[in-house]
């Protein structure tokens, strides 16, 4: 009986964890992934590595879309929505400028993402 209860508890916990992950929680780990991806993209732009820069920028687009959804769901977070949407656009601009072999413009877009991140952190990041 005790074993059955323990198994039930373990399964419930597992399902709960899975559900939490599947909901795409924008938590500290998620934001760390965003930052790592951004740093990789910025480096690739500097090194004129089109393949990596494009892959990272596409990944950033997806991640920032999730951030946007997070702030929409959260409510009362207009600034968060605005800044994450801006980051989606900037990520997209990296993809197009790198495709045109215009790494200077891609670097400008990347620097702007850095500013946008900082603006968002000033409001929402819990230190």
């Amino acid at each position: 009986m005790y074993k059955k209860r323990l198994l039930h508890l373990a399964l419930t916990s597992l399902l709960a964890t899975t559900a939490f992950t599947a909901s795409g929680a924008v938590d500290e780990d998620f934001m760390r992934t965003v930052e790592d991806t951004f740093k990789s993209a910025d480096s690739a732009i500097g090194l004129k590595d089109a393949k990596t820069a494009t892959a990272d920028a596409r990944e950033l687009e997806k991640l920032f879309k999730e951030v946007t959804e997070h702030y929409v769901k959260k409510g009362d977070a207009e600034e968060g929505v605005k800044l994450s949407q801006k980051s989606v656009e900037l990520s997209s601009r990296i993809v197009t400028t790198v495709a045109a072999n215009d790494f200077d413009s891609a670097a400008l877009a990347s620097a702007e993402i850095g500013r946008t991140c900082k603006s968002c952190h000033n409001v929402y990041k819990q230190d």
Binding site: F38, D42, S43, G46, L47, S110, I113, K118
Partner: peptide, 10 residues
């Protein structure tokens, strides 16, 4: 990786 003095921020 190309590292910058103030990372990607600043």
């Amino acid at each position: 990786r190309q590292e910058k003095a103030t990372t990607v921020f600043g």
